[in-house]
Simulated scan of single mutants.
Amino acid sequence: MSKGKIRYKTTIAGRPYTIIGARPEEHMRSVSKMVNEQMQQIESLSKGLDSERRAVLVAVNAVSDQINMQIELNTLQKQIVELEKKLEKAQELKISEE
């Protein structure tokens, strides 16, 4: 096991798992809880799906959320650049007026 990685034991959808990663245990606990909640939500909406298909839907939802957050992050980064340019121009105007 690499330096800094921990083993976190959890149960997801009634099955035991060991997750290995560098994130703190609290993070792993939160991830496990969210996955369990999403698995339960999908189960309540689609009773006929087996756990593998529910897991795939949870993964699809997670990747979709990740893509949406990346788009939002890119938009915010562009806004920051635009605001920095405006601030720089405003500072240049102020200096030239003095």
Rank of each mutant, 00 (worst) to 15 (best):
E97C: 07
I6R: 03
T11M: 03
N61M: 07
S96Y: 11
S30T: 14
V31I: 10
L73D: 08
A59Q: 05
R29Q: 13
A22P: 08
K9N: 13
M28H: 07
E52C: 04
I95E: 14
Y8D: 02
L45V: 07
R54Y: 01
I12L: 03
L45W: 04
K94V: 10
E26A: 15
K3H: 15
A55L: 07
V56Y: 09
A55F: 06
K86M: 13
M34W: 11
L87K: 15
G48F: 06
V63G: 02
D65R: 12
L87N: 14
L73I: 13
M34N: 11
N61V: 04
Y17W: 06
E92D: 10
Y8H: 09
I71V: 14
S64F: 09
E25S: 01
Q91N: 12
L93E: 13
A55Y: 04
G21C: 03
I20M: 01
R53A: 11
I42F: 04
V58R: 02
V56L: 12
L83K: 11
I19R: 00
I67G: 02
M28G: 03
G14C: 03
Q77L: 09
S32W: 02
L76Y: 02
S51C: 05
V81G: 07
S32Q: 03
Q70P: 05
K86S: 15
K9I: 10
K9P: 08
L45A: 12
Q38M: 12
M1H: 10
Y17C: 01
Y17S: 02
M34R: 14
K9G: 07
I67R: 09
E25N: 05
R7W: 07
I80V: 11
G4A: 00
N61G: 06
G21Q: 00
S46T: 09
A90D: 06
K85E: 15
S32P: 00
K86E: 15
Q91W: 09
L87V: 14
P24N: 03
S44E: 12
N68T: 10
E88T: 09
N74Y: 01
T10C: 05
